[in-house]
Design a protein around this nucleic acid. Sequence first.
DNA 1: AAATCCGCCAACCGCAAGACT
DNA 2: TAGTCTTGCGGTTGGCGGATT
Length: 252
Amino acid sequence: MEMKVEGGSKRKAHQSEDETGIRKGPWTVEEDTILVNYIAIHGEGRWNSVARFAGLKRTGKSCRLRWLNYLRPDVRRGNITLQEQIVILDLHSRWGNRWSKIAQHLPGRTDNEIKNYWRTRVMKQAKQLKCDVNSKQFRDTLRYVWMPRLLERIRAATSEYDPSCQPVPVTLNHSSVTPLDIQFHQAPSIPWQAQHVSHGSQNGSDVCPRVASEQGNNGLGGGCGGGGGDWAETLWSDDNIWFLQQQLFEDV
DNA sequence: AAATCCGCCAACCGCAAGACT
DNA sequence: TAGTCTTGCGGTTGGCGGATT
């Protein structure tokens, strides 16, 4: 059995009804239409009533989720922008996995979408770096390398960007960041300072001065997992900065 | 061309908190 | 006040489809 779902695309239907007649699985176009029409007339809320009176064989929870994550007219679709990535990384560093709270600062984005972004993109990077995503090391990597790099790319995309100036690593004066000073619809106002740092590839070629992998580690000195010494100092060696950027930002 | 892998994302589940009776 | 219902949140699952072998 096949049925049309989501804008006419066809997908094998795994929809089923349990013993109480409740349907589960992907929503059909017909169900979406019913839900949208019902909410247009009666408004949001009272989700169990929506399910009951609209004639949908769905739970109230399922109706709510479908509306909030997909059918709502102000849901933004498409890739997470660089600006949005900055906001997500920054707010997550403050609040952790408070997806709904983070989503409140990204109009049109849902908590589910942000959660999926984090799990598929950010956690992937942590895995590649053999870091625990909640470790201080990885959080520092996000803060001191990934986020500045995103800012660089945002700057590069604006007319203010001067291509003759290539501030590769960027330092961060994070102590002066006040909560919620970032809005997704405007350029991030994080008071980070660009800083020129001598770099192994000043001529623009991507030749690593010392290939980290040759050392049999992940380029983070003693490794993310621990080890003694000043981790931050190790991180900021030119070689590691180069390596981290290659590792982290190829597909950001 | 077929099989397998893997990223993405929609949807489900369990739990907790608040609202209602 | 206690019990029930509703809503919201975060974690997890599973299918689709593109990429790779």
